[in-house]
Amino acid sequence: MDSQITIKIKNISKSFGGLKALENVSFSVKTGQIHALIGPNGAGKTTLMNIISGLETADSGEIIFNDKPINKLPPEKRTKIGIARTFQNLELFGEMTVLENVMVGMYLKYETGFIKSGLMLNSVRKVQKDIITKSLNILDYVGLNHRKNEYAKNLPVGEQRLLEIARAIAADPILMLLDEPAAGLNIRETKNLSILIKNLKEEKQITLLIVEHDMELIMGISDTITVLNFGKVIAEGDPLSIQKNPDVITAYLGEED
């Protein structure tokens, strides 16, 4: 049974000073699914994303990825074993071109040493050519090929979000974490994004964990939804059951007096 679970969040707690950001959060993301994590602002969603990717450490609890605990791994090692992510506050390399941004995402697969790079050995040249070809393919895939030579900072938000996804694809992940990929996107862009996310699951066999506020998008693409409120899991299920869940409705709309 466990073999069908890509990542298992086990009793994760985290507080900042006196504020409990996460309290005993547990859930599992099944392999090959699009799993959404929703909840009102301040529910602890981004904190959990940061704990999974290793940018923050949990006070207690465990993260099990492919049956192995990964709590002690630094962020770069987690990416190496197959966890890639995007950021809510866009973390692109602004002064680099769109193509270069994707190329950096591939560095972990093709690291060339200092001395080899400095001497520009043939092997280094060949690897570099490979990386460029593969990066261009990825840009094609997300529909950013026409922007390849522009500086990342000059792209509109919608395309910057796509570029973040492209860079994450470059790491060839098993699990991709998307932190509010639709924030700042217009209706057309959101629609394209939902198609892209579904393609990541179906064509690239990537398991996805998505934090998002756009309910239409979430209800349309998710297989499973986990709802967080004030750092606690209050509901989990398929989109239909979540929409009907009274606790969820209360969390979003407030209680009736």
Partner: peptide
């Protein structure tokens, strides 16, 4: 490129798998 990336965003470079 990895060095330049690090200058752009440390956390993005880290999560791109770079030590």
């Amino acid at each position: 490129k990895a060095l330049q990336a690090m200058h752009g965003s440390e956390i993005a470079t880290q999560t791109a798998g770079i030590n």
